[in-house]
Design a binder for these strands. Structure first.
Length: 430
DNA sequence: CGAGATTCATGTGAAGTATACCTTTAGGCTTAA
DNA sequence: AAGCCTAAAGGTATACTTCACATGAATCTCGTA
C-alpha cells in the first residue's frame, strides 16, 4: 500500500488520469470478493445457534430462570478460559430472557458490565458509575464519595419491584485492581433493598481468582458455579466451518484452511475467538493480495501478524512512564557477546534486575527531561507490566548480594527490534 | 566445622502529598414583573 | 424577587512519594570439637 501512495505523491502530474492507484482499484474491483459477510467472523457477532455448548446454556438458563417469576436466582460464577464461549452463552440466555420479560411484561433489568475496559469499569468507583449509567443516572467521573454512589445505587435500584441481573464480565481484572471490597458490598445489597432483588453473574477467565477473595464473598458470590471447558479441535473445526459458510463466498476456502486454523488455535487452548479472528484475518490478507482463494499460507501469515499487532497495540497504548520502563527493561536485558575467535558480536538476552532497570531508567529520564519516578513506583510498574504479559519475573534472593526480581521479556525475539523502534519513536529518543 | 548473626538489594505495606476534576455555595449581575 | 453565571471553597480518586520494616540465602563470625 505504501508503495502506491509514494508513487502517486511523488508524481508531479496531478492531472494524470491513470496511475498505480487506479490499477490497484481496478484490480481490486475486478477480483472476486472473498467475503460474503465478514461480520459473521467478528468477535461480537452472536450466532443464533451456539454449537457444543448446549449443556452450559441449559445450566445457565436453569439457574437464572427464577428471575422471570420474580424470585431471586442464586448468584452465579462462571469460569472458563478466553474464547470458550462464556460471554456468548450468557448473552444468549439473557437475550432470550429479556425477550420473554418484554413480551410478558415482567420487570427484569439486565446490567451488563465489562470490567476489563480500562477507564470504564476497572475500579470500584468507575464500576459504580457504570451501573448507575445503566439506570440513566450519569454522575461525575470523580469527586463524589463512594458512599454517596452506593446510596444513589440503592435508591435507583429500589424504585420499583423488579429483578436485577448484574453481569460482571472479566471480573478478575476488577478484583486484581480494586480488591474484593466491591464484591463484598454488592453481595450485601439485597438486605438493604425492599423492592428489587439483585443477582450477580460473575464471569472470569482466571480460574484461581476466587482464592484471593474473602471467604464470605466467595461463598455468597458462587452459590452456583459453572466451569466452561475449552473447545477441542473437532469442535473448533465445527464452529469455523459453520461460520465460514455464511462469512465466505462458497468455494473460496481451500479445504486445508479450516484444519490449519484449528491446529494453530489448539496450540494454545481451544480459544474460539482467536480461531475466528485468525480466519477473518487470513481472509483479509487473501483479499488484499487479490487472491482467488484463501490458502493455508494465508493462515500462517495471519497468525504471525495477529500476535504482533496485539503486542504492538499494548505497547503503543501505554503511558509514557510505562514505555520508558519497558524500554529500560529491553535495553538492560539485551547483552552483546564478542566472540574472540571470529571477532563477531552476537546479541543475546538474559534476565535483568530491578536495580539495573532503575539505573537505566534514571539516566534515560534525565536525558529526556522526563520526571523521574521513585524506585517504589517503578517496582509497581514492573508488576503491572507483568500483568499485561509483556514481561515475566520471579523474585530471587542472591544471598549476600540481596534480593531482586529477575525480569525476562515475554516477547518473541523477532519483535524486539520493532518494539524498540516504536518505543524510540513514541519517546522521541535519538 | 557448623550454628547463628550479618548483609545486601530491594520487596512491600502504610501513610502522606500533589493533581485533576467534580459539586456546592455565595456573591454579583441581569431580567421580568 | 427570581434566575443565571462565576469564582471560591470543599471534597474525592488516582498516581506517586516517603518512610519504615520485611525477606531470604550467601557470607561472615565465633564457639567448639
Amino acid at each position: 500500500m505504501d508503495d502506491e501512495f509514494d508513487t502517486s505523491m511523488s508524481s508531479t502530474e496531478t492531472v494524470a488520469p491513470r496511475d498505480d492507484l487506479d490499477d490497484f482499484f481496478d484490480e481490486f474491483m475486478s477480483s472476486k470478493p472473498i467475503f460474503e459477510d465478514k461480520a459473521v467472523l467478528q468477535s461480537n457477532y452472536s450466532p443464533e445457534k451456539i454449537q457444543h455448548r448446549d449443556e452450559y446454556l441449559r445450566d445457565i438458563a436453569k439457574i437464572l430462570a427464577p428471575s422471570l417469576r420474580s424470585e431471586r436466582p442464586s448468584n452465579v460464577f462462571i469460569y472458563g478460559k478466553t474464547g470458550t464461549g462464556k460471554s456468548l452463552c450468557v448473552n444468549h440466555v439473557l437475550n432470550k430472557m429479556k425477550n420473554i420479560a418484554l413480551a410478558k411484561d415482567i420487570p427484569l433489568v439486565i446490567v451488563p458490565i465489562n470490567c476489563k475496559l480500562k477507564k470504564v469499569a476497572d475500579t470500584e468507583y468507575r464500576m459504580l458509575l457504570e451501573i448507575l449509567k445503566h439506570f440513566g443516572r450519569e454522575k461525575a467521573s470523580t469527586g463524589l464519595a463512594t458512599g454517596e454512589l452506593y446510596k444513589e445505587l440503592y435508591e435507583c435500584l429500589d424504585t420499583e419491584k423488579r429483578a436485577v441481573l448484574l453481569v460482571l464480565d472479566e471480573i478478575d481484572t476488577l478484583i486484581v485492581k480494586a480488591g474484593d471490597e466491591i464484591l463484598y458490598n454488592l453481595t450485601r445489597i439485597n438486605p438493604e433493598l425492599k423492592n428489587a432483588e439483585v443477582t450477580i453473574v460473575g464471569i472470569t477467565n482466571d480460574l484461581t481468582i476466587m482464592d484471593t477473595v474473602d471467604a464470605r464473598v466467595k461463598s455468597s458470590l458462587s452459590e452456583e458455579e459453572i466451569v466452561f471447558l475449552p473447545y477441542n479441535a473437532v469442535q473448533i473445526q465445527d464452529i469455523l466451518h459453520d461460520r465460514s459458510l455464511r462469512a465466505f463466498r462458497s468455494g473460496v476456502l481451500h479445504e486445508e484452511v479450516i484444519p490449519r486454523c484449528a491446529a494453530y488455535t489448539a496450540r494454545e487452548h481451544g480459544d474460539a475467538r482467536r480461531a475466528l479472528d485468525l480466519l477473518r484475518f487470513a481472509g483479509e490478507i487473501a483479499e488484499r493480495e487479490g487472491a482467488e482463494q484463501v490458502l493455508p499460507g494465508h493462515i500462517d501469515n495471519a497468525d504471525k501478524r495477529t500476535e504482533r499487532n496485539r503486542i504492538l497495540d499494548i505497547i503503543k497504548s501505554q503511558p509514557k512512564q510505562f514505555q520508558l520502563v519497558t524500554y529500560s527493561i529491553l535495553k538492560t536485558s539485551m547483552k552483546e557477546k564478542l566472540n574472540l575467535v571470529t571477532n563477531k558480536r552476537t546479541e543475546f538476552v538474559e534476565p535483568t534486575t530491578t536495580g539495573a532497570v532503575y539505573d537505566y531508567y534514571n539516566r534515560l529520564a534525565k536525558d529526556l527531561a522526563i520526571s523521574m519516578l521513585s524506585l517504589r513506583r517503578i517496582s509497581d510498574i514492573i508488576i503491572e507490566l507483568e500483568v499485561l504479559g509483556l514481561i515475566n519475573f520471579k523474585i530471587v534472593s542472591k544471598g549476600r548480594y540481596g534480593r531482586t526480581r529477575f525480569i525476562t521479556v515475554g516477547l518473541p525475539k523477532s519483535l524486539y527490534g520493532e518494539v524498540l523502534t516504536i518505543l524510540r519513536e513514541d519517546l522521541n529518543l535519538a
